[in-house]
Simulated assay, not measured.
Amino acid sequence: MTPAPIPGVGAGINLRPRVAALGGGHGLSASLQALQLVTDRITAIVTVADDGGSSGRLREEFDILPPGDLRMALAALCDTTEWGQQWADALQHRFAGDGPLGGHALGNLIIASLWDLLGDPVAGLDLVGRLLGARGRVLPMSTEPLQIRAMVAGVHPDRDDDVSEVVGQAQVATTPGRVQSIRLVPDPPLACREAVDAIHDAEWVVLGPGSWFTSVMPHLAVPDLREALVQTRAKRLLTLNVVNSGETEGFTAADHLQVMVEHAPELHFDTVLADASAVAGQEQQLRSAAESVGAELVLKTVANPQRPGTHDVLLLAAAYRDIVG
């Protein structure tokens, strides 16, 4: 069933805010699905450091941006008509089997084909968006494929004070150690100019949720994007995850803000949104951390009780409406 628009949003298009949403993977997808129930003036700015699965194979074979997270963002912004939903399903369809197509998502192949035809990643993504009737625009954070390199403590538990460099998004996302910092290669990475412009043009910038070190933090490691986030006149909203696992196993909610401060001390926020049950018992610490970056802490119920560890799109949309709309 297609969700109904969230009530309380002005009918005139000029009343709907311009939003730039930054992230990647399932976290950004949930955020975009929620945001499109609040506004249809959305620009998604997506990480391009994935090196696993179908994206990694296409990236290695054709020396292109990894299309997977871009595909997921486009699918999330598909129009809610039958046409849009059918195309969203088609984009996400993954071929089975062990042959050359096995494991590839159809959307990844479409995007890669258009990039080959047009020679321009932004033009290719815009064309896919037109095909889908996407309610927003999807942009890469950089027009060159990037590699994440993280300094991780405890990769080898038998070695005291061990800090190792872990290379690649897939490896960082599954490391058993504690991630301390990340950087991107090439260094410095080049920002997508249209993404920088979208941040400056936005009325709200939404960062997160998502895998903290591989989907959210990489935006701060692109100098022109970080500068735009600092200088924009837009209000800034940080959406925290509803569960800590993988690369942030053992982190408190306040730790997420702390690592962000360490990577971009000049960046401030207006609002930090957290699920009330996910941060139970941490409210005072998290509120202090939010205040340290200039933000008000907003606690809402946004977790999906049917799918632990994920956001409920309608509840998240209602929270975004209250904050942004």
Score class of each variant (00 low, 15 high):
A4W: 06
P5T: 01
I6Q: 11
I6N: 05
P7S: 05
G8E: 09
G12M: 07
G12H: 10
I13L: 15
N14W: 14
R18A: 14
R18Q: 14
G24I: 08
S31H: 07
S31I: 03
S31D: 06
L32D: 05
L37N: 03
L37Y: 01
R41I: 04
R41H: 13
T47G: 07
T47L: 02
D50H: 05
D50I: 00
D50S: 08
G56P: 07
E61Q: 13
D63G: 11
P66Q: 09
P67N: 09
G68M: 00
L70T: 07
C78K: 00
D79E: 14
D79I: 10
E82K: 04
A88N: 00
A90T: 05
L91I: 03
R94C: 03
F95H: 11
G103Y: 03
G103W: 02
N108D: 09
I110A: 12
I110G: 01
I110W: 08
D116E: 15
D120V: 04
D120T: 06
P121S: 12
G129T: 07
R130N: 07
L131Y: 03
V138Q: 00
V138G: 03
P145R: 08
I148C: 10
I148H: 07
I148T: 08
A153M: 13
D158G: 07
D160H: 12
V163R: 14
S164D: 10
P176S: 11
Q180G: 08
I182C: 05
L190E: 15
A191I: 03
E194S: 10
A195I: 02
A195Y: 01
A195W: 04
W204A: 02
L207S: 12
P209F: 01
W212R: 06
F213E: 00
V216S: 01
A221W: 01
V222S: 08
P223L: 01
E227R: 15
E227W: 09
L229E: 12
T232W: 12
T232Y: 10
R233C: 10
A234G: 11
K235P: 02
R236A: 05
N244C: 09
F251T: 12
T252F: 13
A254H: 15
D255G: 14
H256W: 10
H263Y: 08
E266G: 15
L267P: 10
T271H: 09
V272C: 06
V272Q: 09
L273A: 09
D275Y: 09
L286R: 07
A289T: 12
A290E: 00
A290V: 01
E291S: 13
S292R: 13
V293T: 10
G294V: 07
V298C: 14
T301Y: 13
N304G: 06
G309P: 04
T310F: 06
A317H: 04
A317S: 04
A318M: 14
A319M: 11
Y320D: 00
D322T: 13
I323D: 13
V324G: 05
